[in-house]
Write a protein that binds this DNA or RNA. Sequence first.
DNA 1: TTTACATATTCCTTATAAGGAATATATTGA
DNA 2: TCAATATATTCCTTATAAGGAATATGTAAA
Lengths: 124, 124
Amino acid sequence: MTRQAHPADVFTAIAEPRRRQVIAVLSDGEEHAVNEIVVRMKMDQSPVSKHLSALHKVGVVTVVKRGQHRMYRLNAEGLKPVHDWVKVFERYWTHQVDQIKQRAERKALERLIRLDDGPNKKEE
Amino acid sequence: MTRQAHPADVFTAIAEPRRRQVIAVLSDGEEHAVNEIVVRMKMDQSPVSKHLSALHKVGVVTVVKRGQHRMYRLNAEGLKPVHDWVKVFERYWTHQVDQIKQRAERKALERLIRLDDGPNKKEE
DNA sequence: TTTACATATTCCTTATAAGGAATATATTGA
DNA sequence: TCAATATATTCCTTATAAGGAATATGTAAA
């Protein structure tokens, strides 16, 4: 699964729990050898290398060859697209009070409109 | 693909570009009928319903039955896990200046260490 | 130059999930 | 009750990607 079918974008890359785990290991911003990551993840070397390769492909990590080791480091900028995307929705939970009020108003309005439509059931 | 194999977590759910598109349509915080989303997405009804169902399963949208329509609304709180996860990495790109300095220092240190190891090649 | 070690890659099998076509279900209206 | 409409669901095919075992590659050290 290496020269074949790595996720093409960051969103897909971080969807894999194992990959978020790799990122967690690298989240101190320091260099780490594959070796070390393997130990920390309690996982075979092969899949770890593959995950690192996948993360590298989408720009979330960088590699430096150092002796017989490959040192991986987090490149957090690669996560910015995700951050930027989700940041837009912050307001929905930060201004809860205003939110709830507005929502209540809307609901009231909707209830009025519903009267024209006859009785209705809810679902969720 | 409906009672079968919907993504189990938000990260996987939003990895699908179409699903982020659905979310974009719902990002005004208002109710939208499936119908309307189908038109806006220029996609068949079946896959749209499936995506909505997937988003509902992970709590990113809510549904209300209203007449013959099902009104979907964004439930942004469902995106909070993603936000919380990625927010941790904000500092890596917001304090760039300090970052670069620290990094330079580290690199210098590393160069010293490398002298013990002999010459090395880089890669990326 | 053989050996040991670190890591990447390939091959294979399997799981997950996307999309389309067809159909089922539910609601409303005639 | 029957037709129309909105939506969900099922079935099928296909694409994507995960993991393990084995192997290749690269580097260092004896």
